[in-house]
Nucleic acid binder design. Sequence first.
RNA 1: GCGCCCGUAGCUCAGUGGAUAGAGCAUCAGCCUUCUAAGCUGUUGGUCGCAGGUUCGAUUCCUGCUGGGCGCGCCA
Length: 572
Amino acid sequence: MLFIDFRQHVLAVVRQVLADKGLTDADYMNVALEAPKEESHGDLATNAAMVLAKKVGMAPKALAEMLLEGLKVHEAVEAVEIAGPGFINFRLKTSALIGQGVAATAAGGAYGTLKAADTRKAMVEYVSINPTGPIHVGHGRNAVFGDAIANVLEKAGFPVWREYLVNDSGNQINVLVRSLHARYMQLFGHDVAVPDNGYPGEYLIEVAEKLKARDGDKWVSETDEQVLLRELRSFAVETCLDLIKQDIQTLGIEFDRYFSEFAMHQTDRMAEVVAILRNKGLVNEGTLPPPKGKEIADYKPVELTLFKATEFGLAEDQAIYNRAGMPTYFGQDIAYHYDKLQRGYELLVTVIGIDQTGAFKPLAKAIEALTGRGDVYHPVAYEMVKVMRNGEPVKLSKRAGNIVLLSDVLEEVGTDAFRFTMLTVKPTTTLVFDLAHAVAKTMDNPVFYVQYAHARLCAVERQREELGIPALDAAKLDVATMKISAEARSVLREIMLYPALIEQAARSLEPHRLTFYAQSLAAAIHRWYAAEKWLDSADVRATHERLAVAFAARTVLADVLKLCGVNAPTSM
RNA sequence: GCGCCCGUAGCUCAGUGGAUAGAGCAUCAGCCUUCUAAGCUGUUGGUCGCAGGUUCGAUUCCUGCUGGGCGCGCCA
């Protein structure tokens, strides 16, 4: 690919020219090749002279002069100039951009696919909502982020496994069963309230009805809670998980595996990892100080099994088992991540809500202790989604009855609009999702803008056929002598930059970059569309040249939308 | 009290140790005898929260302050 090849050229020349300056690999780390903000500054630019000037003991512009001759020597280069404080700007030959476009069309979905420099097996764990009820909008953000991250990592060359952790073994499942049983009893006319700390959502009535349909009144007279917990656990979990899976399916997401924590605890994973950490001197028995945030009247310290997070500079150790001897969330997390490592995954991405990030620092330290590496665990924390309705904020709470269900929102705005909107904001920004706007399908939502560009590209090909213009045979194009408009050239420039986008989005785990690229490419396409008529029966050659650009654009636009999980419609 | 995130145009948000800080919406003014006007062109709009520091250069990195959001047993 042109961008990748050209960057190799730049780095090779810089290293060659400065070979006797005693620079290290680390010195070259910050040398970058990127597109200037102003298109008039050129197609690509490198900061090499500015970054290395001090190390070499030269002024940036003088160093740039020194590099210039070598950098010029590349078949794609039309002109090189030094500008501003020491940028080296490249203007590429239009024929090189066209060649890249034609190649992109030929490669189809493979264009922009990178060979990862490291070939670690990656696992993206996302959604992982407790199977105690349906998904709300905030969970939808998790799902969309995780899926796009997985897509982009795959595109960047990593083998990727998508996993959902089903947290089906904690106390919340007991709470779920109690709540379900209360709803079940209500169906039989018994005045039983949902427990105070239970799940009051009305969806449990539906679950209870399913239980009634399956078992009749079998559990009405059952008074032994242990029996209920044992007998109804898997029914409750599976039925609730089905609710979640419906939404996952609507979003177009497929997991490679739903990993059951309950099943994991039937194995020795937890004991194994605790033993390993204990052997490393990182687990011992001890007591924790009282919690900071609030007063606890009858607090009594007790000896617990602790992970010594303080060894890593963290404020407090973390309990692995609670005073009842059951695994804590943190303990389960260690065991689960140990399991991931045992299965051979070495790049562990977890998409997690910002309100759930309390334990990820000690978990990161535990994984570091297990692997000896600090670059294995990558939590992606995303901020809350603030849902507005008629100017009033809608509070998101799993416990409260008035949660905004993802399925409702998807029905209102459609999967494409939802996914695209969720990807227009970086993870750390609190996202304000205005239902009124989204429902109205105004241009507040740029997904239509991007999809429309794709539809136009497809419509033109249909029109070509109707006009009786022969289909394009890319092999017959004379790339070297093609003449295209400035607007078409801008489209090709965006296409040339696609591999850089993939690389950056994968490295930063920031999939919102995809939608910004998509909008940028779509804007170039719309501008070009408005600037000149593409189809001309009187000039088949020129028409074919423009179609070649259009097909390249269609290829890349469809691919980036696919990474976003958004449809690329052929007509609108 | 502590920890994490955020503060950029009227609104919703991008962006960067460097070139004149951007997009969409909203405002105002234009463009359909021409492949889909869900589009295009132009216009208005900024003390990048405040104050220091680091350096050739800071909106970007560091510190303090301030405003907002979230979290703070061995819970879930």
